[in-house]
Amino acid sequence: MKIGISSTGKDLNAQVDPRFGRCQYFLIVDIDTMNFESISNESAMASGGAGIQAAQTVAKAGIKAVITGNIGPNAFQTLSAAAVKIFTGASGTIKEAVEKYKKGELKETEAASVSSHFGMGGMDRDFGRGRNL
């Protein structure tokens, strides 16, 4: 079975990226063989709707679950529609996160863990009003 993990790097020793929509990479890991591939997250710099785009990207990779730190409402809705299970609150390396997942130590999330724009951080002080184009 394949799962997707938001990651700061391209291999299993990389740290879990706490952001979903704006993470650097997704690691797609086959938890039975520990074979993996990395996907660069093109929505990391999207002006809006990053979580939605990222959710579609990982859903297309044929995964059954996503492991990340936090997830916003739009990404949550998109992954749920794609029947992908969501596990939040992960940290440490990708390998550690996968082990925890296998042992059933990660808790499945029933709702978004953060509000929209969370992963944009302090980049833009006015981001809530900025999408006027």
């Binding site: 709707g49 990053a50 939605i52 785009q53 579609q56 859903a59 529609a81 794609a82």
Partner: peptide
Amino acid sequence: CDKCSEFCMYNALAVVPSKVLVFPELCH
């Protein structure tokens, strides 16, 4: 087919297997 969500630069549409989601507040 996903053409609509690929086109939308504001990510107001999401296509997942057997469902299309519309996010009205992102649509321009």
